[in-house]
Amino acid sequence: MSNRFLLASTSAGWPPPVLDPGGPYAEPVTLLAWALLIGGAVVLAIVVAALGTALFGSKRLKAKLGGERAIWLGGFLFPAVVLTGLLIWGLSLTSSLSPQPGTDAMRVRIIGEMWWWRVHYLDARGQEALRDANELHIPVGRPVLLELESADVIHSFWIPRLAGKMDMIPGRTNKLLIEADRPGVYKGQCAEYCGGPHALMGFVVVAHSAKDFERWRAARRPADGGGGPGLDLFLASGCAACHTIRGTAANGLAGPDLTHVGSRQTLGAGILPNNPGTMAGWIADSQAIKPGNRMPAYHQFSGRELRALAAYLRGLE
């Protein structure tokens, strides 16, 4: 339950997520990043030393620096050697991190929308098995192949602790492999400017142990129909025009699937904790929270109605 409050609980600034890998598709990049950062600092120190010598050095040292030979050594030979090594490292790493055909990975299709994410879990044959939004649950220790698409403009999918980013481009399906080593919550955010509230388009990956994942998976059943007044309000107020709740008459496709909205970590695509209060606030006036998002404000509900609706949605676990 504690990870429900992830927004504030991850108050750590250090280590930065890029340098704090959570799985095998991020770890080699972290190693590379450290090598580059340290190597870069060393080269900068060398240049500063050379510059310092040129300005304040002894006659003998200055004479060594002051000629075409020094330019060839420092400006050509040294970078040529270092960069050849780096290039070989970079190229082989690129290829080893790129999805190869025929991996035994769990498949999930994620579709970027302005300004949220559709999540379709696929079975082994690529058929859609389960729909969700703004949150991805994965088992630890198993690679997950993400098929990234876009429904409108270009977005970019980025969970820094699990892998580098990959764009979601209309008309294309890009593939990205992620894998988590340990159970936990991994946050991410849209990295390609997509207009409006691009800054508020977050995402959450929850990694479970294999057993917990099966339990989580098994609990994904359509709503049981016991909606009561909350469901009636939902259907009567037009919510169903955009949202689907499986097991009910609500089958709208424009907005996130709400079948399991109550069990999500966040609301508003990774930006708010999910509790009855934020649920009510989001329903009544999401425009105040995430300006420009596609859901209008619903001021017409009475207090009781709003609570009933929020309670109903919160109950959709």
Partner: peptide
């Protein structure tokens, strides 16, 4: 030079 390395750029990009 760092961001010229494709895997690092996947993290640093944007």
């Amino acid at each position: 030079v760092m961001v010229a390395m494709v895997p690092f750029d996947w993290q640093a990009h944007d």
